[in-house]
Write a protein that binds this DNA or RNA. Structure first.
Lengths: 142, 142
DNA sequence: CATCATCTTTCGACATTCGAAGCTTTCTGT
DNA sequence: ACAGAAAGCTTCGAATGTCGAAAGATGATG
């Protein structure tokens, strides 16, 4: 598990390097691609950043040509952030082959085995979340 | 998979908050606990930080009471970083229950199922690493 | 239509990172 | 032995990213 986590980490880092982004910005871009367009405030919540940090992150993504800003016509206080075609192309380049490799690797398994794997993944996530919740209840040091 | 990764991430963040550390320092502390004592230079390599960043990370861990510095008697250029008892106690508090919960969750599976899970984990890691290697070959943007 | 709430941005301060330079200690060749 | 190079860590200055607070603009409410 630990090793798998480290490999996730290494992948994210390489992906960020490939796109010339830092990891915060890559995370934001992923979130924007998942819900396109997205209001800046939603991104603040989803990325767990301060509003100020979100603004500068969007600035950087905009400068890099991955997103565009526009006022929400329905509520002109809000700013909508939309991914550009360049962002979608980058997503395909980075995640497309990963998805294909994953899919073809899963073909080795039979139906029962896939069920075990899915059950395991769900269980692992549940355990991890329970333990996260436990930590959150403990007092913060300092 | 994506969700599992996010839950890993959330756990690490809570663990760091619990200990009053940032995530870089937590990663360093994990590495030190895994190979205790560890030379500062090894930590630089293992954590993929610059030597300068490593020095300040050790400074912070030392100030927090989690590690101590000492000159290597055999090679007095090197600085050995050792975890304190407080660090080991923190490790037990944070990771102990996670390990137990994980172990007990795995008890639900039979031997064949466990074999499938292990195979899956290894495959996933291999795929992830192959894809990381692919990204590293691409030119860096900008 | 005045006031309060919402949403984003700007501002100043602080933390973390890096590259380069510096210091001490060890190794190498003569 | 000893001069010079190498190894290993730290210090320094600059750049980057983050936050909290305040400000600005728009929308909702009575």
């Amino acid at each position: 598990m630990r090793l798998l986590q480290q490999s996730f980490d290494a992948f994210d880092e390489s992906a960020a390097a490939r796109l010339g982004l830092n990891r915060t910005d890559l995370r934001c871009l992923d979130l924007i691609l998942a819900k396109d367009p997205m209001a800046a405030g939603e991104l603040t919540t989803a990325a767990k950043l301060s509003p100020a940090a979100t603004t500068t992150a969007i600035d950087r993504l905009e400068r890099a040509g991955f997103v565009t800003r526009s006022r929400d016509a329905a509520n002109r206080r809000r700013v909508l952030v939309a991914a550009t075609e360049a962002a979608r192309a980058a997503e395909r380049e980075v995640y497309g082959p990963l998805g294909e490799a994953g899919t073809s690797a899963l073909r080795r398994y039979g139906e029962e085995q896939l069920a075990v794997i899915i059950d395991f993944l769900e269980t692992a996530r549940r355990v991890q979340e329970e333990q996260t919740a436990r930590l959150k209840k403990l007092p913060v040091r300092e």
